[in-house]
Amino acid sequence: MLNLIRNVFAFVLLVVSLSVNSQESRPLSEGALHCLTCHGNQTYTLQNPWTGQEEKRLMNPYFIIDTTHYRTGVHRTFSCTDCHATDYETYPHAAELKLEPLSTCLDCHGGDDTYAKYQFERIDEEFQKSVHFVKSGESFTCSKCHNQHYYKPTARNSSTVSEIVSYNNAMCLSCHNNLARFQLVSDQQNPVLAQVHAWLPNQELHFRNVRCIECHTQVTDTLMVSHNILSKEHAVQKCVECHSSNSMLKASLYKYQNLQARSGKGALGAVLQNESYLIGANQVPALKLLSILIFVAALAGVLLHSVFRFTKK
């Protein structure tokens, strides 16, 4: 009996430990953990050889790596020194390490068939046509939008519009709403987005339900995400581009298979699975017909009645 209890207990322990493990499923590499003892926290401890004491210091907030986001990023299996110089293992870091050239997305992913479905080369071509590259040049790297530590392809994998929108917009807002980052690539002040878009009613709602790139890029059918940010003169301002039965959102935001997998039940399904309501675009032909019929019936009733009124007087 005691044995049985012990066995059950052991089994439960095993299951629990397994499930705990699978939650933390991506153990960070040893190398990463070493760097994160300092870069994962607000403060770090260093051994001061001059005084022979341990001292606590504040970490530069811009140099803190968010461990939770790192764990879900595409490069989570990497050790920090897969990208950064191995010399970083010692602290104080050598001054010239600041000048280390870091690989770009294309350096690693360009011409690699494993990643063909992402079309890195075409994205690069599109990006080079964008206002950002045209105006800011090489200093505007892919990493300005795609943090190499955290990036995860969301539009491709997420099944909710709101998650895709907030993730994608955060990539733009991290700079457009942050003067310090903005001035890394420009000498100007960042325009206040709420003012620039004052013409758009229910702005907050819009920014929660459509992506910046919906209005600011030319939709490309063959690319998952259009990367050619056009100059502001070419931004979508016409409401009916979205608010109509042939809304352009069908070709951009709502085109993703992962979103459609959720509906997939014909016209009614498409209405029923709605996470959002788009004035003018959520037209159900059957309902439209029904309402026209009732309308016409009411008019016909009135007409018939008045005919009787004027003939039978």
Partner: peptide
């Protein structure tokens, strides 16, 4: 009606 049917 003009919004519902997006008559622009």
């Amino acid at each position: 009606i003009s919004m519902q049917w997006s008559i622009d």
